[in-house]
């Protein structure tokens, strides 16, 4: 059906097309994410960064194209399979913290671990550790409604990192933060990724933040403008072909 993905790519997509209620968001994107790298996806608002991260992180089903994770197809998975994949393999930080309001900070951070079946003690120990590391240890027993947004965002980062997932997706994680706090959060994200051999896919509208990444790709109107992954020559063609097909049908 398709060529096997390159071995060193933990996440690999070919020719993905996705539209929201008829509005095209991705018009044929081929991208590979190498294991342990920090990949920045830049682009202005509405360029399809969030959709790309959603498709790669198995949150959104793709309309067309393929997504592979660790040489296993993601695009063919059903809803339950995608849920399991997200829970066990992926971490996600959005531009909004999206914490569960009735849970305390440490319960929020421990929740993914508990959901994955970790013991209570292990889950809360890990949660406390990560909260300390992100400078929000002193509010561990408070609920998010009493905290300011930058604290909530740090808790969200801790929640994504605590289970040490192989891949962490960060979709504009610094949007609610001031420059200083945003630098710190990104430093923690990237250093955690490097020290634990995690792969980090970071979407940002701020081109300056690319300095935290190993490699950057740029998205404009649902298309990659910078050469992204070392996608094999033979497989790049269908992606562009499907993109032009989409634009052709729209005209």
């Amino acid at each position: 059906m398709s060529a096997a993905p390159p071995d060193n790519d933990v996440l690999w997509a070919r020719g993905i097309v996705k539209s929201h209620h008829g509005t095209p968001a991705l018009r044929g994107i081929s991208i590979g994410v190498r294991e342990g790298e920090v990949l920045a996806v830049t682009g202005p608002r509405g360029s399809g960064k969030s959709t790309l991260l959603g498709c790669l992180s198995a949150l959104l089903p793709v309309d067309k194209g393929e997504v592979w994770f660790n040489s296993a197809p993601v695009h063919t998975l059903g809803r339950a399979g995608r849920e399991r994949l997200r829970r066990d393999r992926f971490g996600f930080v959005g531009s909004e913290p999206h914490l569960v309001p009735e849970l305390t900070a440490r319960e929020n951070v421990a929740l993914p671990l508990l959901l994955a079946g970790a013991g209570n003690k292990a889950a809360y120990t890990a949660a406390d550790e990560w909260l300390e590391r992100l400078d929000v240890g002193e509010v561990a027993r408070q609920r998010p409604e009493r905290l300011v947004r930058s604290q909530c965002q740090r808790i969200a980062v801790a929640r994504a990192l605590a289970p040490l997932p192989p891949v962490v997706f960060a979709d504009d994680p610094t949007a609610p933060l001031h420059r200083e706090a945003s630098d710190q959060v990104l430093r923690i994200l990237t250093s955690a990724a490097r020290s634990h051999q995690l792969t980090l896919v970071l979407a940002t509208h701020d081109p300056e933040l690319v300095r935290f990444a190993d490699r950057a790709v740029a998205l404009v109107d649902g298309r990659l403008t910078a050469p992204a992954a070392p996608v094999p020559r033979g497989t790049a063609a269908p992606g562009t072909a499907s993109a032009s097909a989409v634009s052709a049908t729209r005209r």
Binding site: L59, R86, G94, H98, V100, R159
Partner: peptide
Amino acid sequence: RGVTDALLRLGTSPRL
């Protein structure tokens, strides 16, 4: 709805 979405994004099963 936002909280439910966040929980689902974390990989919480709808059954839970």
